[in-house]
Design a protein around this nucleic acid. Structure first.
Length: 607
RNA sequence: GCCCUUAUAGCUUAAUGGACAAAGCAACGGUCUUCUAAACCGUCGAUCUAGGUUCGAUUCCUAGUAGGGGCACCA
C-alpha cells in the first residue's frame, strides 16, 4: 500500500551505497515489530556481512557495523514526504509514517474500494481448483468437509488475488463400493427409499455397512456361511460385470441410486455456499481413458505387457531418465482391460487442458495420494503437456477421530450433516440465553451462519499439512480463537454504525477522515492491521494457505475487540474525532467482511 | 528397504535466518447503571536430541529419536 515511499527510500539507499562502495544486499522490508507507531523497516546485517567477507570493512562485528551503516544512511536520507521520523536501531533502519496522513490514507482507501479492498490486479492465468470429490453411494463425512472447505477457501483466495478461477468437482461414481450398495439394495431393499435427501443418503451408508459385513470373510465360518458368502460375492461380481457391459437394468439402478447421492451432495454444497462451475464424473472419463492407454503405448510412453499376461504399465523413472527411484512404475490398465484411478486422472487432465484451457491446475486431495498424483503429473509431462509443470497437489492432513481413523464399516464415522445440525442447535441455545431480542424468524438463519462459521473456521485455522483429530466440542466452540469471535467483532462494528445512523449520521455522509488528533494505541494498531489485508490475501493465495487468512482475520478481530473496549466511539465529544473514528469502524467492518468472505464464512448483522 | 510428512507452553495451534517466539483452551485473579460480556485486562508456561552451514539457527543442511502416511493391476 505504501510502495511509493518505499521505492523512494530504496533508491536513496542504493545511491548512498554506490557512492560509498558498500556491497548492499537485497532490501527486504518488514513492519516495525513495535506497537504504538507504524512504519516499515529494513536491516543491514547482510550488507555488513558482505562487506566483511569482501575484506572491505574493519574488524567490527556484523551487528555493530550494521548499526553504523543504518546510522549513516539515516543521516543521508533527509526528509521524505509522508515519513515523520527515521531511526537507526540495532542494525535496523526504521521509518515511521506521519500519523494522520497514514491513517486517513488507509481508511479512505478501504471505504473507496469497499468489497474490492484487497483485491489483486487481474492476472492472465486461468486456474482450476479441483475439490469436493466424495464417492457417491456413501455419505458426506467430516473428512470430505475439510476437503470442500479448504478447496472453496482456496478458490476464493486465488480468485480474489486476480486469477480467473474455475471450481471443479470430481465425484467418484463407480467402482466396487458403488456396486456393493447397488447389490444389497437390489437383493434386500428394492423399492424402499426413506423420505428426505439426507436421510436417504445416510440410509445408503447403512446399506453399505451391512453389505460389507455380509461379504466379509469371518473367522470360524460354518460351511453353510461360507457358501452363502461366496454366492453373495458372485452376485456382486456379476453385477459389476453387467454394469461394465452396459446392461440396461443395472445402469438404470446405478443412475437412480447415484442421483440420490448427488442430491445430497448438492445440498451439502449449498449449506457450505459452494458453487461448482464444472462437474466431472469418474464415469465420464472411464471410456476416454481407455483410448489414452492406446495413445501412450503408441508413443512408447507406456509398455504393453498384456501379450505376456500382464498389464499396461508406465516405467516412469526409466522414461524420465532417472536413475534413483522417485516415481517408480505404475499400472495404467489392468490385465483384464479395465481402467484405474490413474488412467482416469490422465483423461481428466487432458479434458482440463484441452477443453477448459486451464493454465494451472490445483488438486485439493488428501496427502495420502501424494505419490499417485506425482506419478500422474510425471506421465502428463512425458506425454508432452506443458501445463504438467503447473499441476499442483495441495495435500492436506487427514481427519480422524479421537478413537482412531474414520471407518464406515466399524461405524466410526462423523457425518457432516450431523455436525452442522448440532452446530445450529448449540448456537440456538446460546442465542436464547444471550440474544433474546433477535426476532424468532431470523434466529435460525443467524444460528446457521454462526454454527457453520465455527465449523469452517476450525477447519481453516489448522495448516494444510497437519492432521486433524476431530473433536466436536472443539470444532463448535464459540469462545476464543473461533469463527464466532470474529463474527462478533463484525457485529460490534455494525452496531456502532447502526447507532450512529439512529443519531442522525449516515455513514455515507461522513466527511473524509482527517485523523488530525492524538490517536490512541488501539486506533493505531487497528489501522495497521487493516492496512495489511492486501498482503495477507497475496500471501495466502501464493502459498495456497487459507490458514494465512484465518490467522490474519483473527488478529484483526482481536485488535478490533480491544479497540471497542478501550475507545467509546459514540461517546466521543469532539465531532471531528468522532467522525474519524466512525470512518475507522466502517473500514474495520469492511475488512473483516472481506476476509470472512474469502474464508467462506458469513458475517451476520446481529448475534 | 525406499520416499513423503510432523515434532514449539499441561492441551490445540501460529510465527521467524536477526530487534521481546504469538495466540486460544485449561488454571488463577480482575472488568457489565456503558457502542450487546459470544467481549476486555492481568498472572503462570514452550522451540525433540546431536552435529554442521552462518557474523547470527527455533527456522536451512545431515544424522538420530518419536508419531502419521505412501510404495504397480484399491481409490
Amino acid at each position: 500500500m505504501f510502495t511509493k515511499e518505499q521505492q523512494l527510500i530504496e533508491s536513496k539507499i542504493k545511491e548512498f551505497c554506490a557512492a560509498n562502495e558498500l556491497p548492499l544486499a537485497e532490501l527486504k522490508w518488514q513492519p516495525i515489530p513495535f506497537a504504538g507507531e507504524w512504519g516499515f523497516a529494513t536491516s543491514f546485517f547482510q550488507t555488513a556481512a558482505n562487506e566483511a567477507r569482501a575484506g572491505m570493512g574493519g574488524k567490527i562485528p556484523v551487528p555493530q557495523r550494521a548499526q553504523q551503516i543504518a546510522e549513516q544512511i539515516r543521516g543521508q536520507i533527509g526528509r521524505v514526504e509522508g515519513i515523520s521520523r527515521i531511526d537507526a536501531v540495532k542494525g535496523y533502519l526504521n521509518l515511521y509514517f506521519s500519523t494522520s496522513a497514514y491513517a486517513s490514507r488507509v481508511v479512505d482507501e478501504v471505504l473507496a474500494a469497499r468489497l474490492d479492498f484487497g483485491r489483486g490486479a487481474p492476472k492472465s492465468e486461468r486456474v482450476m481448483v479441483e475439490y469436493a470429490q466424495p464417492n457417491t453411494h456413501h455419505s458426506f463425512h467430516i473428512g470430505h468437509a475439510r476437503n470442500t472447505i479448504l478447496g472453496e477457501a482456496l478458490a476464493r483466495l486465488v480468485e480474489f488475488a486476480g486469477y480467473e478461477t474455475i471450481r471443479a468437482s470430481y465425484p467418484g461414481d463407480l467402482g466396487l463400493g458403488v456396486i456393493t450398495v447397488m447389490w444389497i439394495y437390489e437383493k434386500f431393499y428394492k423399492g424402499q427409499e426413506p423420505a428426505g435427501v439426507h436421510e436417504r443418503g445416510q440410509w445408503m451408508l447403512k446399506l453399505y455397512v451391512e453389505a460389507t459385513a455380509l461379504l466379509e470373510k469371518k473367522e470360524n465360518e460354518t460351511p453353510e456361511e461360507t457358501a452363502q458368502r461366496e454366492s453373495y460375492e458372485a452376485e456382486r461380481r456379476e453385477m459389476y460385470r453387467k454394469w461394465d457391459a452396459g446392461d440396461a437394468d443395472v445402469r438404470e439402478l446405478w443412475r437412480v441410486t447415484r442421483e440420490w447421492s448427488l442430491e445430497e451432495l448438492r445440498d451439502v454444497l449449498r449449506m457450505l455456499d459452494v458453487k461448482i462451475d464444472v462437474w466431472f464424473y469418474e464415469s465420464d472419463v472411464d471410456a476416454p481413458s481407455k483410448a489414452i492407454v492406446d495413445e501412450l503405448i503408441a508413443r512408447d510412453i507406456a509398455t504393453d505387457e498384456r501379450p505376456q499376461g500382464g498389464a499396461v504399465i508406465v516405467k516412469i523413472d526409466e522414461k524420465l531418465g532417472l536413475t534413483k527411484e522417485k516415481y517408480r512404475t505404475n499400472v495404467i490398465l489392468r490385465r483384464d482391460g479395465t481402467t484405474l484411478y490413474l488412467t482416469k486422472d490422465l483423461a481428466l487432465a487432458k479434458v482440463k487442458f484441452e477443453e477448459h484451457h486451464v493454465d494451472r491446475s490445483i488438486y485439493v486431495v488428501d496427502v495420502r495420494q501424494s505419490l499417485h498424483l506425482q506419478q500422474a503429473f510425471a506421465i502428463l509431462k512425458l506425454w508432452g503437456f506443458p501445463q504438467a509443470d503447473k499441476c499442483y497437489h495441495l495435500g492436506y492432513g487427514f481427519v480422524s477421530l479421537p478413537e482412531g481413523a474414520m471407518s464406515a464399516r466399524r461405524g466410526r464415522l462423523v457425518l457432516f450433516k450431523d455436525v452442522a445440525d448440532e452446530a445450529v442447535k448449540r448456537v440456538l441455545a446460546v442465542e436464547t440465553e444471550k440474544s433474546a431480542d433477535i426476532p424468532a424468524d431470523e434466529r435460525e438463519k443467524i444460528a446457521t451462519q454462526i454454527g457453520m462459521g465455527a465449523l469452517v473456521y476450525s477447519m481453516l485455522s489448522v495448516d494444510n499439512n497437519k492432521d486433524i483429530v476431530f473433536d466436536i466440542n472443539e470444532a463448535l466452540s464459540f469462545d476464543g480463537r473461533t469463527g464466532p469471535y470474529i463474527q462478533n467483532a463484525y457485529v460490534r462494528a455494525n452496531s456502532i454504525l447502526k447507532k450512529s445512523k439512529v443519531e442522525g449520521q449516515k455513514s455515507g455522509d461522513l466527511r473524509p477522515s482527517t485523523f488530525d488528533y492524538d490517536l490512541t494505541n488501539h486506533e493505531i494498531e487497528l489501522i495497521e492491521k487493516i492496512s495489511r489485508f492486501p498482503q495477507a490475501v497475496e500471501q495466502a493465495a501464493n502459498e495456497y494457505r487459507p490458514l494465512v487468512m484465518a490467522a490474519y482475520v483473527y488478529e484483526l478481530a482481536n485488535t478490533f475487540h480491544s479497540f471497542y473496549h478501550a475507545v467509546n466511539v459514540m461517546q466521543t465529544e469532539d465531532e471531528n474525532i468522532k467522525n474519524s473514528r466512525l470512518r475507522l469502524v466502517a473500514a474495520a467492518k469492511q475488512t473483516i467482511e472481506n476476509a470472512l468472505r474469502l474464508l467462506d464464512i458469513q458475517a451476520p448483522d446481529v448475534m
